[in-house]
Design a protein around this nucleic acid. Structure first.
Lengths: 203, 203
DNA sequence: GGGAAAACTATACAGATGTAGAGTTTTGGA
DNA sequence: TCCAAAACTCTACATCTGTATAGTTTTCCC
């Protein structure tokens, strides 16, 4: 079914291109990102990419900017306050909702080594994520020096990466819950006398 | 200065191509992997790629096969038995020794979504890694049900990914050490809670 | 030492890709 | 209403890329 049915509304080309990048990367990887492939997916002429973004690099940077903004606004880690099973499910649900978007961000993480603009955006994104974890740990009265937040976030990040690629959801879910237990363990070891395994009800 | 100085010894072309792939991916990403780019780096004619590997996909698969074998043999996580500071330094040293190789494996992890052959190899690699962690945890008498090994490995994996891209070594080092402390915490909490304590046979 | 097989090169070409330039459509404001 | 700017398309072309084919060099082994 060739669906060149209706043209996009005037002014929607730019956004359509950004969305198309996510899809093309998910389907064919960065190797598949060409002016024509992206434009075809977006339903516009391939020269429109140059008009809006100047180059493929510019297109990728703009797409990442867009993706980062969305991720930060949605703060997928919002429900992180409690590290219980509900948290695990909500985290996985967030990633499952838009796997292509997450995949794209991982691609850009690797790309950041070769592109300063991308690097800056990835740094911003990751600092936001780690900051969110840090906040959650602090609320539980945990010592957040020594990069505990970074360690916890890296565990979740690594698990989501595997979730999106090679490891089945059930195992990932268990492992995410384990991360929650590790946090509890951190609480115990820093507060040696604590008997209260149950976190105090929301204050 | 054209430096077509010395040709490769006869029979070395294949290996030279594999090594070249790692370099090209590190420098230009998967987008930069073309017959000519890889062949030029290896110092051979670009048609040699087809002769040995059939296609770019075949070339990437063969390179991954080679990379996985090396990683498994070296077992970069060998010194994982103790989760102390020495372990952190040795882990980072291993990754630092050949960052391009690690980067390539992360690229292939993402690629595994679109390539069954790559998927099989990445699965093998990750199972080996998780298995190594599991062994280390068992030796400490820890309960390894519930995917604790997967969680711990994911933390280290996620940290190495950041180490290779956006986060400075000092922070990574601290975080890796934190992972070690989390393992200790796991030990405490499994004793303290007595929830699902299955004694591991330390035979 | 001779011949087949494997490794490798040379060349040529079709199709894909990036890019330039000129033209068309739509929007929005004076 | 009109016009300038922005959004967008069309076409053309040079370059890059993959691939086929034929030929050369080296190795291996009987």
């Amino acid at each position: 079914m060739s669906q060149h049915s209706r043209r996009l509304p005037y002014g929607d080309g730019r956004d359509a291109l950004l969305a198309a990048v996510i899809d093309v990367v998910a389907e064919k990887g960065l190797r598949g990102v060409t002016y024509r492939a992206v434009a075809a997916r977006a339903g516009v002429n391939h020269t429109l990419v140059t008009h809006h973004f100047g180059s493929i690099e510019g297109l990728l940077a703009a797409t990442m900017e867009w993706a980062v903004q969305r991720s930060i606004e949605e703060t997928g880690l919002a429900g992180i306050a409690d590290f219980d099973e509900g948290f695990a499910d909500s985290l996985m649900a967030t990633v499952s909702a838009e796997p292509e978007l997450q995949l794209f961000q991982f691609e850009m993480l690797l790309e950041s080594r070769r592109n300063p603009k991308i690097l800056a955006m990835v740094e911003r994104l990751y600092k936001t994520y780690v900051g969110t974890v840090e906040e959650a740990l602090s609320q539980r009265g945990l010592d957040t020096t020594g990069e505990a937040s970074l360690a916890i976030f890296a565990a979740l990040d690594g698990l989501m990466l595997q979730f999106l690629t090679i490891t089945d959801p059930a195992k990932i879910r268990s492992a995410v819950i384990q991360v929650g237990k590790l946090v509890s363990g951190l609480l115990n070891s820093s507060d040696a006398s604590g008997e209260s395994r149950r976190p105090a009800t929301t204050s």
